[in-house]
Amino acid sequence: MDQIDPTAPPSGTGCADCDATGSWWLHLRRCAACGHVGCCDSSPNQHATAHAHGTGHRVVQSFEPGEGWFWDYVEGEFADGAPLAAPTAHPADQPVPGPAGRVPADWMTHLH
């Protein structure tokens, strides 16, 4: 699939857009085409989906430790994908939700 570049490194260890705005996330997704790390659809800002819609990069992989699944936003279903460049997840000691210090005490009320 031309939507997956196994050589593209992740953009960082957290949601690039949340980091830029000082926000927080629940879970992370990594664009399989360019490596952009965004927050999941349960997160307040849903940056991974926004990235997919804005760029046409339709496939993401979970960026959570121990998870390796791919999701195709166009098909709305799980997809197959080639192994991506390391690292394949955020650091195991990074809290969920995260990052530490930016998650409000009432974070569960902000989820979708």
Score class of each variant (00 low, 15 high):
residue 3 Q to I: 01
residue 6 P to S: 02
residue 6 P to H: 00
residue 7 T to A: 15
residue 7 T to W: 00
residue 8 A to Y: 09
residue 12 G to I: 01
residue 14 G to V: 08
residue 16 A to R: 14
residue 16 A to N: 06
residue 18 C to G: 07
residue 18 C to Q: 03
residue 19 D to F: 09
residue 20 A to E: 15
residue 22 G to A: 02
residue 22 G to D: 00
residue 23 S to W: 06
residue 23 S to P: 03
residue 24 W to Y: 10
residue 27 H to V: 04
residue 27 H to Y: 10
residue 28 L to M: 08
residue 30 R to A: 08
residue 30 R to P: 08
residue 30 R to N: 10
residue 31 C to L: 10
residue 31 C to H: 05
residue 31 C to S: 13
residue 32 A to G: 12
residue 34 C to F: 09
residue 34 C to S: 08
residue 35 G to K: 00
residue 37 V to I: 13
residue 38 G to A: 06
residue 39 C to G: 14
residue 39 C to Q: 09
residue 40 C to D: 15
residue 40 C to S: 15
residue 41 D to C: 14
residue 41 D to L: 14
residue 41 D to I: 12
residue 41 D to F: 11
residue 44 P to E: 05
residue 44 P to F: 02
residue 44 P to Y: 05
residue 44 P to S: 09
residue 45 N to G: 11
residue 46 Q to M: 13
residue 46 Q to C: 14
residue 46 Q to A: 15
residue 47 H to W: 02
residue 47 H to I: 01
residue 50 A to W: 00
residue 51 H to R: 07
residue 51 H to I: 04
residue 52 A to W: 00
residue 55 T to E: 09
residue 55 T to N: 03
residue 56 G to E: 07
residue 57 H to G: 04
residue 57 H to F: 03
residue 59 V to S: 06
residue 60 V to T: 15
residue 65 P to F: 11
residue 65 P to I: 13
residue 67 E to V: 07
residue 68 G to E: 15
residue 69 W to F: 14
residue 70 F to A: 10
residue 70 F to Q: 07
residue 71 W to E: 06
residue 73 Y to V: 07
residue 73 Y to I: 05
residue 74 V to Q: 12
residue 74 V to D: 13
residue 74 V to P: 04
residue 74 V to S: 02
residue 75 E to H: 04
residue 76 G to V: 01
residue 77 E to Q: 07
residue 77 E to A: 13
residue 78 F to V: 02
residue 79 A to V: 02
residue 79 A to E: 02
residue 79 A to R: 01
residue 79 A to F: 06
residue 80 D to G: 15
residue 81 G to I: 00
residue 81 G to P: 04
residue 83 P to N: 09
residue 84 L to Y: 05
residue 85 A to I: 11
residue 86 A to I: 03
residue 86 A to R: 08
residue 88 T to M: 12
residue 89 A to L: 08
residue 91 P to Q: 08
residue 94 Q to R: 10
residue 94 Q to K: 06
residue 94 Q to D: 11
residue 95 P to D: 04
residue 95 P to C: 10
residue 98 G to D: 01
residue 98 G to W: 03
residue 99 P to D: 02
residue 99 P to H: 08
residue 99 P to V: 13
residue 99 P to M: 08
residue 101 G to D: 05
residue 102 R to C: 04
residue 104 P to T: 15
residue 105 A to I: 08
residue 105 A to T: 13
residue 106 D to L: 06
residue 106 D to P: 03
residue 107 W to H: 14
residue 109 T to P: 07
residue 109 T to A: 14
residue 110 H to Q: 13
residue 111 L to P: 00
residue 111 L to R: 15
